[in-house]
Amino acid sequence: MLKGIIFDMDGVLINSEPFHFQVWKETLKARGIHIDYEVYKPCIGSTVGFLMELLHEHYQVDVQDTALIAEMKSMKKKMIEERGYPSLIPWVKEFLERLQEAGYVLAVASSSPLSYIRNVTEHWGIDRYFQKLVSGETVKHPKPAPDVFLKTAEILGLSPEECLVIEDSENGCKAAKAAGMACMAYYNPDSGKQDLSTAFALVEGFEEVDSAFVEKIYCHFHHLPAKVCETNRLLIREMEKGDIPRMMEICSQETSADACEGVAKPLKEELEDFEMYRRYMYELCDMGYWCILEKASGEIIGRAGVEPKLWNDNKTVVELGYMIDEKFRRRGFAYEACRAIVEEAKKRGAFYLYCRIKSANMPSLELARKLGFQKIDYHLEGDSEDMEVWRCACHGNH
């Protein structure tokens, strides 16, 4: 269960990497050293100590040159007085607000000195969101080692498996992976060309990232079923392997043959390699067929969802399908679940949704009409003559 979210600071909370490079550039210039950005870049996300090793390697600077560090701090103070602190990343305060309201424990784990972390968070009024501020200078090994993240989790009283990290640097993403924590990378173009491939997911901004999205990243990283959406009576979540017997039970019901619109093959065949299905549909496509649970009883009462399908001439469409246990039909569950899923599909960027319905299946035809689908003049090769195709234009319903 996700309980704690750990933020890097530089490049994630504030847009500071260009500022830090300029500080070092001016400091070294006074020493007659003209630092190349490619030399500096590997230290992004790591500590001053790591940079000193790079300076020693390329410019023969003594790694124990405390005078140089003092000069850098003096230059940094001067530039902050002249220019102010680096600006907040757009929408990050709203993002922190959403996460706090969702009940997560938040912390900062930065390679910067603790005093600077404290000054920055207080200056921008975001200190109130964080339960702990932790500096990479307080651990033995800097990022890309996992030490600072492991220490932060320990201080929060959480296990690494209960935490998610938000990073913008290659070093930080590697550190999160080494700590065994889920990692969401924020692509900051001002942080240099970082290799963020070790992160589990990548975002380019925080304006639309909410707690549900972060929770989904966490669940997928740990191969747990993520919640898709919910209604007053129903919870719709991703399937897990233990759900398959119940799904097979529902699918084998005598009346299920007409209730499986959109299912191109038997459920057992679709999910015989469940891990492949989970990775491809849930993690890569962000679609799939999901479990429908009645909240009152906690029982699985069916499945519904949207999947990408290849139709005539290899046309790719997104197809809606559903199936409800016969004991739970005629109670409005199908409409309630499918309506929620159509709205979720819109949020996930669907342009059109399609469904296939047998012409004699009056309940499903009526359901399609209520959902805003319209019958179109189209016949899918291989379908029986009595199979109709219906389409919903999502973009027209925003």
Score class of each variant (00 low, 15 high):
308 P>Y: 12
345 A>R: 01
97 E>N: 10
333 F>C: 09
113 P>S: 10
250 I>V: 03
309 K>V: 11
345 A>P: 01
132 K>P: 00
187 Y>I: 07
65 D>H: 07
390 W>P: 04
325 D>R: 10
242 G>C: 10
120 V>Y: 05
308 P>Q: 09
119 N>D: 15
332 G>T: 12
208 E>D: 15
30 A>D: 13
70 A>L: 09
304 A>T: 12
4 G>I: 04
124 W>A: 01
184 M>H: 00
360 A>L: 11
182 A>E: 04
58 H>D: 01
49 G>S: 06
250 I>E: 01
186 Y>K: 00
145 A>C: 07
247 M>T: 02
72 M>W: 08
394 C>F: 05
222 H>N: 09
293 L>S: 03
12 V>A: 03
146 P>V: 03
52 M>F: 15
396 G>E: 15
19 F>K: 09
45 G>A: 08
392 C>Y: 10
260 C>G: 02
73 K>E: 15
217 I>R: 01
13 L>C: 10
211 S>N: 04
57 E>W: 06
140 K>S: 14
112 S>T: 06
204 E>N: 12
258 D>A: 13
262 G>Y: 05
252 S>W: 02
396 G>P: 00
39 V>K: 07
120 V>Q: 09
293 L>C: 12
382 G>L: 03
303 R>D: 01
157 G>S: 06
304 A>E: 11
286 D>S: 09
279 R>A: 14
269 E>T: 14
273 D>L: 09
200 F>L: 03
40 Y>S: 01
123 H>P: 08
351 F>I: 15
240 E>C: 13
372 G>Q: 03
273 D>K: 13
193 K>D: 13
315 K>V: 11
298 G>H: 05
259 A>H: 11
26 E>A: 14
156 L>P: 02
17 E>D: 06
185 A>P: 07
171 N>Q: 09
296 A>D: 14
144 P>S: 05
301 I>N: 08
145 A>K: 08
241 K>V: 14
286 D>N: 14
109 A>K: 05
97 E>D: 13
44 I>D: 05
177 K>I: 01
321 G>C: 10
350 A>P: 02
14 I>T: 14
112 S>L: 05
10 D>S: 06
179 A>H: 10
312 N>V: 09
85 Y>I: 07
310 L>M: 13
8 D>F: 11
275 E>L: 06
256 S>V: 08
130 F>W: 13
195 D>W: 02
176 A>W: 04
128 R>I: 10
173 C>Q: 03
11 G>A: 04
264 A>M: 13
289 Y>I: 11
187 Y>H: 11
136 G>H: 07
201 A>G: 00
324 I>E: 02
235 L>T: 14
239 M>V: 00
13 L>K: 02
330 R>Q: 13
146 P>R: 06
205 G>C: 09
229 C>A: 07
138 T>D: 12
146 P>K: 01
126 I>S: 05
106 L>P: 03
162 E>G: 05
68 L>P: 01
258 D>T: 08
57 E>K: 15
218 Y>S: 08
174 K>H: 11
261 E>R: 12
331 R>V: 05
349 G>I: 07
273 D>R: 14
35 I>A: 01
77 K>M: 11
35 I>E: 00
141 H>A: 12
97 E>K: 10
285 C>A: 12
95 F>M: 09
261 E>H: 13
127 D>H: 09
74 S>H: 14
181 M>Y: 05
366 E>G: 02
288 G>Y: 06
171 N>P: 03
54 L>K: 14
191 S>L: 06
209 V>K: 03
158 L>Y: 11
293 L>H: 04
310 L>C: 08
